[in-house]
Simulated scan of single mutants.
Amino acid sequence: MESSTRLGGEVGRLLRQERELRRLTQRDLAMATGIAQTTVARVESGHRGAALPLVERLFAALGRQLVVGVEDIGEDVDRQIAQLATSGIDDRLLDTDVERFRRHIDGISYVFDGPTAALLQGAPVPAPGVHVALLWSEADHITEWLTGRYASRWMDRWQEYRHIPVDPREPYPHRWQTIAGEIHARMCDELPESIDVRHGDRHYPVVPLAELAIADPGVARLLDRHRAGRGGQPAPGRAG
Score class of each variant (00 low, 15 high):
Ala118Phe: 02
Gly114Ala: 13
Asp189Glu: 13
Arg175Ala: 05
Thr178Gly: 01
Glu190Asp: 11
Leu94Arg: 11
Thr33Tyr: 08
Glu193Arg: 15
Val219Glu: 06
His226Ser: 06
Gln65Ala: 08
Ala32Thr: 01
Leu93Cys: 13
Asp189Trp: 08
Asp90Lys: 12
Met155Cys: 11
Trp145Lys: 02
Val130Lys: 01
His131Thr: 12
Val132His: 04
Asp156Leu: 05
Arg23Gly: 00
Arg169Trp: 09
Tyr150Lys: 06
Ala60Gly: 12
Glu144Ala: 14
Pro236Ala: 06
Gly240Gln: 11
Gly148Lys: 06
Ala123Ser: 08
Arg92Ile: 02
Gln83Cys: 07
Ala239Glu: 08
Ile164Glu: 15
Gly9Ser: 12
Asp97His: 12
Thr38His: 03
Arg198Met: 08
Pro236His: 06
Leu52Arg: 10
Arg100Asn: 04
Arg16Phe: 01
Gly49Pro: 04
Gln65Asn: 04
Asp95Lys: 13
Gly34Asp: 06
Ser87Ala: 14
Arg186Thr: 10
Arg79Ala: 13
Thr5Phe: 05
Glu190Thr: 15
Pro205Gly: 05
Leu222Asn: 06
Val55Ile: 15
Gly200Arg: 11
Ile35Thr: 03
Ile89Ala: 09
Gly232Asn: 08
Leu52His: 04
Gly181Gln: 02
Ala210Asp: 13
Tyr150Trp: 11
Arg238Met: 15
His199Ala: 06
Asp78Cys: 09
Met1Gln: 02
Gln233Ile: 05
Arg221Ile: 12
Leu93Ser: 07
Glu75Leu: 12
Leu84Trp: 03
Trp136Pro: 03
Ala180Asn: 02
Ser3Asp: 02
Ser87Tyr: 11
Gly12Tyr: 00
Glu144Gln: 14
Ala60Val: 10
Asp28Arg: 02
Ala213Asn: 06
Val70Ile: 13
Ala117Val: 09
Gln37Ile: 06
Ala185Lys: 00
Arg221Lys: 14
Val68Gly: 00
Arg13Asp: 00
Ala82Met: 13
Val67Gln: 00
Val98Arg: 08
Val197Ser: 09
Val77Met: 12
Arg27Trp: 07
Arg169Val: 08
Asp97Ser: 04
Glu44Lys: 04
Val68Cys: 00
Thr25Val: 02
Leu62Pro: 00
Leu146Cys: 09
Arg186Ile: 01
Pro234Ile: 14
Glu144Asp: 15
Gly232Ile: 10
Leu212Trp: 04
Gly237His: 03
Pro53Asp: 11
Arg230Ser: 12
Glu193Ile: 14
Glu75His: 09
Gln177Cys: 04
Leu29Phe: 02
Ile35Met: 05
Ala127Thr: 03
Phe59Cys: 07
Arg16Trp: 00
Ile179Phe: 00
Ser194Met: 02
Leu15Asn: 09
Phe59Gly: 02
Glu144Trp: 00
Arg22Gln: 15
Gly74Asn: 13
Arg225Thr: 11
Met187Leu: 14
Arg186Gln: 10
Glu44Ile: 11
Gly88Leu: 07
Arg157Met: 07
Ser87Thr: 13
Ala36Phe: 07
Glu71Phe: 00
Ala213Phe: 11
Ile164His: 14
Ala127Met: 08
Leu58Met: 14
